[in-house]
């Protein structure tokens, strides 16, 4: 009785498993995405990676907050000089939780920029921009420039005195670039004066052009992170790929767990067994 019940159950389980696996296999056969995700999730990172390594994903989270709240704001915001200010007031004071969405977008921008700088400082201090990760550093600097450009173009959108006059001067400062300056200023203004065309232009750059570029650059950034791996902290006694680890072991005459061979076999058998 008991045995046959177990067999029946296991047959049912098998059918259930097959039913769950079918769409996954279907997707995998046609796209390879499942394998890609599995690779991404179960790839090895250095054993000594720590909280400092979370600054990059924290920056990504701040960006995703900006993207999400930005999409919601775009549903209520009206990029016309006559209506922009009123729509910002409407979002902040009338729309359900509108204050939270606008507040998160406004303050998320600052958090995003701060995290960009912290992440950059971490990479600098870890020497993580060195061979073979030079290209990823350059992509990161580009992302920083894009983030600052988002700040500049987004600042105008509330169309209040603060944003208007800061942008007047900001565009004028762009105009001091030798030779190209007047053309840059003209392009940003969309004419000789700041007006409806400027606002529409800043809105389009702020919510389409630069975010698109940022998404693409983040994709490239993450691809390179996964391909090249992250650097161990330089002070780590077991830093991956560091020639100073053996040096230390031999000069200090340490033995046992700190010796690479012994430690790695311990790790394989114990802590991180898959």
């Amino acid at each position: 009785m008991a045995v046959s019940a177990r067999t029946r159950k296991s047959a049912r389980l098998q059918r259930l498993e097959a039913a769950i696996n079918y769409p996954i296999d279907w997707l995998e056969e046609r796209s390879g995405l499942v394998g890609g995700l599995r690779y991404f999730l179960f790839r090895k990172v250095p054993g000594d990676s720590n909280w400092f390594h979370t600054l990059g994903s924290a920056t990504l989270t701040a960006f995703l907050v900006q993207a999400t709240t930005g999409v919601i704001l775009a549903m209520y915001y009206k990029p016309e000089p006559k209506t922009a200010y009123a729509s910002i007031q409407h979002i902040t004071n009338d729309v359900t939780l509108g204050w939270l969405v606008r507040g998160m977008h406004k303050w998320g921008a600052s958090v995003f920029i701060i995290l960009l700088f912290f992440h950059m400082a971490r990479v600098f201090l870890f020497g993580a921009y060195k061979y073979p990760r030079e290209l990823n550093w350059i992509v990161g600097v580009l992302l920083l420039v894009m983030g600052m450009a988002e700040g500049f173009t987004g600042y105008l959108l509330p169309w209040d005195q603060t944003s208007y006059w800061a942008t007047v001067v900001g565009i004028n400062l762009n105009g001091t670039v030798p030779f190209l300056g007047p053309y840059i200023a003209q392009f940003l203004r969309g004419g000789a004066e700041i007006g409806p065309d400027t606002l529409a232009r800043f809105y389009s750059i702020h919510m389409l052009l630069i975010p698109g570029a940022i998404f693409a650059l983040i994709g490239l950034h993450l691809y390179l992170v996964v391909r090249l791996g992250v650097s161990s902290p330089p002070w780590s006694k077991e830093a991956a790929g560091a020639d100073w680890v053996e040096e230390q072991v031999t000069t200090n005459g340490r033995s046992g767990l700190t010796q690479p061979a012994a430690r790695s076999s311990w790790r394989r058998n114990g802590g991180d067994a898959e």
Partner: peptide, 27 residues
């Protein structure tokens, strides 16, 4: 570096991902 990570690294999920998730929630 690649060999060291392969030999004595830890899988991204769940170890690093746990830290990332906590940090993201803080953000």
């Amino acid at each position: 570096y690649k060999e060291d990570v392969k030999d004595r690294g830890k899988p991204f999920y769940p170890y690093a991902m746990f830290h990332d998730t906590v940090m993201s929630l803080v953000v």
